[in-house]
Design a protein around this nucleic acid. Structure first.
Length: 266
DNA sequence: TATCCAATAT
DNA sequence: TATATTGGAT
């Protein structure tokens, strides 16, 4: 019964397609004209020199992928609309993507964790400043609620709604969690267990399998944060690869969504 | 200009 | 519901 409670994380993690698996799919979906039509590239990405440790797609290749997505969004009836006015599909914050986000925040420290720097550190192509800003806003609210009762993983779900926090709860909290300026002395705790999420609504059945609905009981995150890297690695040394694979999907609604898969291993 | 934050829209 | 967008404030 409760085995699945402790396995849900591992389950969806296994289900996540690897970038390599997705690559051919994305490429198949691309039409060259759309690739040309959509020319968006992060204009203010300072182009960190990253050794392609994990090479999944060349930058040219996923520029094409991005192009396709933009093009498809307007392809129904809007044949000649300039790319800049086209709406991008909504970004889906997969647990992997969110984890990279959290990693970036953790490395930067609360102080420096602003959308611009986070976006740079994440180095996920296709991510926009607004994507990050919006997510960061939500994430901060989440952290704020968590801090109220941060310790044991079995407290009442005072501020946490399992129905809305499953994504955030799926990723370890940044070690410094809350400790803004403080001389910037990098006092990082060894690790911080994610405060448990407690549910009270028995019916958390969602259609989002990847997020995994947290059990309606108190549960503890079934893994230990193992990503404690050297505190505050400055950008430029060992950043994540900037590659990412993305996939466009169509929800039941007919709405397009954009899913970015950072290629780092998690 | 970039950011924050709340409200609102999709 | 999750994410995007907007607008006012700093």
């Amino acid at each position: 019964m409760r085995e699945e409670d402790s396995n849900w994380f591992a389950k969806w993690e296994e289900e996540l397609p690897s970038p390599k698996e997705l690559m051919p799919l994305s490429q198949t979906l691309i039409t060259p004209n759309l690739a040309i039509a959509f020319d968006i590239q992060n204009p203010n990405t300072p182009n960190p020199k990253i050794s392609p440790l994990v090479h999944t797609l060349s930058s040219t290749e996923f520029e094409s992928n991005l192009a396709e997505l933009g093009g498809m969004a307007g392809s129904s009836g809007v044949g000649d609309e300039p790319a800049r006015t086209q709406k991008r599909p909504r970004l889906v914050w997969t647990p992997q993507l969110h984890k990279r986000f959290v990693d970036a925040v953790a490395q930067l420290g609360i102080k420096n964790a602003v959308p611009k720097t986070i976006m740079q550190l994440m180095s996920v192509d296709g991510l926009t400043h607004e994507n990050v800003a919006s997510h960061l806003q939500k994430y901060r609210l989440y952290l704020k609620r968590m801090q109220g009762f941060s310790n044991s993983g079995s407290v009442y779900g005072a501020g946490v709604d399992p129905a809305t926090d499953h994504l955030f709860a799926s990723s370890p909290l940044p070690a410094h969690f809350l400790h803004p300026g403080r001389g910037n002395s990098d006092h990082y705790m060894p690790f911080v267990p994610v405060a448990a999420v407690i549910g009270h609504a028995p019916q958390l059945q969602q259609q989002y399998r990847h997020f995994g609905s947290p059990p309606n009981r108190q549960f503890e995150v079934p893994f230990l944060p193992r990503q404690l890297q050297q505190p505050v690695q400055r950008m430029g040394t060992s950043v994540h690869s900037s590659s990412s694979v993305l996939e466009s999907a169509t929800a039941a609604n007919g709405k397009k969504v954009l899913t970015l898969f950072p290629n780092g291993d998690d």
